[in-house]
């Protein structure tokens, strides 16, 4: 029968495509994840021989001040940046969806930071924070600005937040604009910036309609900010005195060249568990909110 031969051919072809794809994925995603998990039970330095140490790395992880500090910095950075980015991009998206002149050019301009690489952007801002901002602070007599943010343990993280938001706002704005396009024009026009009445209507009419896009942005933002690496390596390399060491940077720095391969494998696995937990938690919360509406 012709029909069944066709179905058979289809099944066989699908299988011939799927098997190598799954094998490739397993080899370079699942296998290293398992191997990393196994390394986390060893005292491997990254070279030479090593022994099994059981759960010692995990026990040490929770008492390690440097690791604790990097989690605190990473979460503080991610939460603050996520909030700032979402406020900024929601405002921009509302503006860019209003009846403005040169709409498409302005939208194009506000997206530029997203296409630029984080490392080079970091280097450019590094010069700004080291020389330009302190010079401006001195000229204007503002003490807070007159020394470099990047050499202060209490202010360096602010510089990284600024650079992170500068880049991330672009993507979130575009997603909010896409969200606002799903809202009937009369509704969001009413919500555009024209006085307190408009704001009230925005919160009660427009915002509930774009909650799915709000949750996409929260999840995307949080995940990207928790992984922060390029900006750290360009701006501070974790300094001063490890005050801006993100988890990714710590894994890279101490795991690859600091002789802590086994210990940082445990850290990486803990980080994996944290990321999965947060993502699942976030999706649950935002999922429930959507249902309520």
């Amino acid at each position: 029968m012709k029909q069944s031969r066709g179905a058979k051919d289809r099944k066989r072809t699908f299988l011939l495509i799927t098997i190598p794809v799954v094998a490739l994925f397993f080899c370079f995603n699942t296998l290293p994840l398992i191997r990393g998990f196994l390394y986390s039970f060893t005292n491997f330095k990254g070279y030479g021989s090593y022994d099994w140490v059981g759960l010692r790395n995990y026990a040490d992880l929770f008492g390690d001040l440097r690791v604790g500090k990097s989690y605190r910095f990473t979460f503080q950075y991610a939460v603050v940046s996520t909030i700032l980015t979402n406020i900024l991009s929601l405002l921009l998206a509302l503006g860019l969806s209003a009846r403005i002149k040169g709409k498409s050019i302005l939208r194009g301009i506000y997206f530029i930071p997203n296409v630029l690489g984080g490392l080079v952007v970091g280097y450019i801002f590094s010069f700004f924070f080291t020389y330009v901002l302190p010079a401006a602070g001195r000229a204007l007599g503002i003490g807070f600005l007159s020394s470099s943010f990047l050499s202060s343990t209490s202010k360096a993280w602010i510089a990284i937040v600024i650079v992170g938001c500068w880049q991330a706002t672009a993507l979130n704005t575009i997603i909010y604009i896409a969200g606002l396009q799903t809202v009937p024009e009369e509704v969001y026009e009413a919500g555009a910036i024209d006085g307190a009445g408009g704001w009230k209507r925005f919160w009660s009419l427009t915002f509930p309609l774009i909650i799915p896009f709000f949750s996409i942005n929260l999840v995307l933002c949080m995940k990207n900010f928790l992984m922060v690496f390029d900006q750290i390596i360009a701006l501070t390399r974790g300094g001063p005195s490890q005050s801006t060491e993100s988890i990714s940077y710590l894994i890279y720095n101490n795991g690859m060249s600091g002789g802590q391969f086994g210990f940082q494998s445990a850290n990486a696995f803990l980080f994996f568990v944290v990321i999965v937990t947060i993502s699942v938690f976030q999706m649950r919360i935002t999922g429930r909110k959507e249902e309520q509406l």
């Binding site: 290293p32 990393g36 390394y39 995940k223 990486a268 696995f269 980080f271 993502s279």
Partner: peptide, 16 residues
Amino acid sequence: GMFVPFAILMMPLVKQ
């Protein structure tokens, strides 16, 4: 696999 950032696989991948 979207839940697995590169930083987590980095060390074993370098060996592999």
